[in-house]
Nucleic acid binder design. Structure first.
Length: 473
RNA sequence: GUCCCCAUCGUCUAGCCUGGCCUAGGACGCCGGCCUUUCAAGCCGGCAACACGGGUUCAAAUCCCGUUGGGGACGCCA
């Protein structure tokens, strides 16, 4: 069997959308599973809307989610000659003709037809004119078959039948010499020997327009697979008003790319009841047989859960690595550099089951980087009171009497002390927690002490005592 | 308007192709409990769906038809 060749062909008219990422992902998984080639092609034939920044954004997004390509990125604007050659070949064979209708007139006729409740199709008025050398502006139209049917055996939708009589003659070469989408995709998919065209199902109705072009050009047909759309909570096509749709926005919000990939692949594909997949499992298990035919609603809550899962179950070093840029952004770059990898991993392990994003993690991790800690006003007022000061002092003295830190020993000391004083654990734990972290919520007290180390623990305790004594009852 | 696609808990889905094992399973979220020094995490339990109507069949979530609903396409955009 010949090699599988698939492509992802975004148009650079904005950021990389999560729907685009999912399309790319399914292509990529299929290519990797079949040891085929994944090709990246930039469809930039609309020079008025394509931008260089968008191309960079696409590459950046692909890189972030780890979708590497084997060929490309090709740019259609570098391949103009190819499209023109193919278009003229069709003209010479009588399978395309010049159309001298003005764009405004076409627009007006379309409006008129729509108003009458008719199909807004091109009426074919230049079809029989036999124009050889148009003088003014002219576009080249494909002479589409008007009889019979075009049948597509879609990998996901099954057999889909279209009546050719319903299709009009689409423009393949604009009057400015640029090819249109439906033509350039065909030429590229053919020349790049794409075996499987996997794309969003918004392209399903483009397929019966493209198939006859493949045939007219004499190229073999690829297989087609049309992926269902991603919708917002209101079941409308996912757009900005549903929240973030740019893949990079999720990076900025503190999502892990592995969580994004796992979530996105499960949106429309399943493997029994399994929710969590490693990348290799996805490559191994992916199949079009289990791609859903219906659209899926994007669920931010489940994505968040997925991210929390990856935060909790990834190797600590991986989490530290992902967290680093966020720490720098939070002004903790120097402290990050000064910290040991082992300590950072220990810290991350301590806080990670309490966080769902890297942004949240920064907040949880922040109190442990510096010698002093920011005290939250409400927490201080509530727990560091004059009433608790004596107990804090006594406890601190006991800790000072212990020559070195040992989590087990300090915990034992603490508990014995609480018992002696006939206090409840929480009565003393909360004030100590506030003294050590500045907050009322933190990881376990003794884990916190371990992270801080003996000196810093004692230091913060003493600071806490000062606060407690100074605080008005 | 025309054509095309789709239809299982609120959401993602298993099951559907190859009817019976489905008094429909899992996950997210939600609710309750357990654990507990805080916050989480974890564990246990609960609520919750085969869109509707016909047919085929001994038997239909599963097959067929229709209705309704949702989505997409109809550009010298991609």
């Amino acid at each position: 069997m010949s090699q599988v060749r698939v492509r992802f062909a975004p148009s650079p008219t904005g950021f990389l959308h999560i729907g685009g990422v999912r399309t790319a992902l399914f292509n990529w998984l299929f290519a990797r599973q079949r040891k085929g080639a994944f090709i990246l092609r930039i469809e930039d034939t609309d020079q008025s809307r394509s931008t260089e920044e968008s191309i960079q954004a696409i590459l950046e997004g692909m890189k972030w989610v780890g979708l590497d390509w084997d060929e490309g990125p090709y740019r259609q604007t570098d391949r103009m000659e190819l499209y023109r050659q193919h278009a003229f070949k069709l003209f010479e064979r009588g399978q395309a003709y010049w159309c001298v209708c003005k764009a405004e007139d076409l627009e007006a006729r379309r409006k008129e037809a729509e108003a009458k409740g008719l199909s807004p199709r091109y009426d074919g008025r230049c079809r029989g004119l036999g124009i050889q050398n148009p003088t003014g502006e002219a576009a080249l139209r494909f002479r589409a078959p008007q009889e019979g049917q075009t049948v597509i055996e879609d990998l996901i939708k099954g057999q889909v039948v279209f009546d050719n009589a319903l299709l009009d003659d689409l423009i393949i070469l604009r009057s400015n010499g640029y090819p249109t989408y439906n033509f350039s995709v065909v030429v590229d998919d053919a020349l790049m020997e794409i075996t499987h065209v996997i794309r969003g199902d918004d392209h399903l109705t483009n397929t019966p327009r493209q198939v006859p072009i493949f045939q007219a050009l004499g190229y073999p047909l690829p297989r087609f697979g049309h992926l269902p759309m991603i919708l917002g909570a209101d079941k409308a096509r996912l757009s900005k008003r549903h929240g973030a749709t740019s893949i990079m926005a999720y990076k900025e919000m503190g999502y892990l790319p592995e969580a994004m990939v796992n979530y996105l692949v499960r949106l429309g594909w399943s493997h029994g009841d399994q929710e969590i997949f490693t990348r290799n499992e996805l490559i191994e298990k992916f199949s079009f047989d289990h791609v859903q035919a219906s659209a899926a609603v994007f669920n931010p809550d489940k994505l968040l859960w997925m991210n929390a899962h990856y935060l909790q179950h990834s190797p600590p070093g991986r989490v530290v690595q992902a967290l680093a840029p966020f720490l720098e952004q939070a002004g903790l770059g120097n402290e990050l550099k000064a910290a040991s990898p082992a300590w950072l991993e220990q810290l991350v392990v301590l806080v990670r089951e309490r966080t769902k994003t890297l942004i949240e993690m920064v907040h949880w991790v922040a109190p442990y980087f510096r010698y002093d800690v920011a005290m939250e006003e409400d927490a201080t007022k509530k727990f560091l009171t004059p009433a608790i000061a004596p107990a804090l002092i006594e406890l601190t003295v006991r800790f000072e009497g212990l020559p070195q830190f040992s989590k087990a020993l300090w915990e034992e000391t603490f508990k014995k002390f609480v018992e002696e004083k006939n206090m409840k654990m929480g009565q003393l734990a909360q004030p100590v927690r506030v003294a050590l972290t500045g907050r009322t919520a933190s990881p376990g007290l003794f884990e916190v002490m371990e992270i801080l180390g003996r000196e810093r623990t004692l230091y913060r305790l003493r600071k806490g005592i000062e606060r407690a004594q100074g605080g008005q009852a």
